[in-house]
């Protein structure tokens, strides 16, 4: 009933179909991936403030001209890191989805015969 309003945005064709067991497996695998990347992400961003307490070099040294390593990382390096993590995680998640869900015949270019 709640679905009747969903409109034409999500056509559910006859050929595409996911079994509950295979989706459960894919979700478990995705969760493992997400947690792994989440851990990497947390360690990276938490290490910046922690390092400024633990390692005088971190905020005392000069890296590029007048910036300390801490400043370089906070003002630029982390954004690059986020983007790299995002691209890696999205690529991995997508290829896991591709490989764990869907029937064996609905590949993109492979089906065009």
């Amino acid at each position: 009933m709640a679905r009747s309003e969903m409109g034409p945005g999500t056509p559910r064709g006859p050929e595409e179909f996911d079994g509950p067991a295979e989706v459960a497996a894919a979700a478990r695998t995705q969760r493992r991936i997400a947690l792994g990347y989440g851990l990497l992400f947390s360690v990276a961003i938490l290490s910046v403030p922690l390092l400024s307490v633990a390692l005088p070099w971190w905020s005392g040294a000069r890296l590029v001209g007048g910036m300390s390593p801490s400043f370089v990382v906070a003002a630029g390096g982390l954004y690059v890191f986020f983007l790299v993590v995002a691209v890696a995680a999205a690529t991995l998640a997508r290829s896991v989805e591709d490989r764990m869900l869907g029937s064996s015949s609905d590949e993109g270019p492979g089906t065009e015969r």
């Binding site: 497996a25 478990r28 493992r32 896991v96 490989r99």
Partner: peptide, 13 residues
């Protein structure tokens, strides 16, 4: 019949 899959992502390739 219930089936449970438990697949490591590294296996897939």
């Amino acid at each position: 019949l219930q089936v449970e899959y438990d697949i490591d992502p590294a296996v897939l390739g």
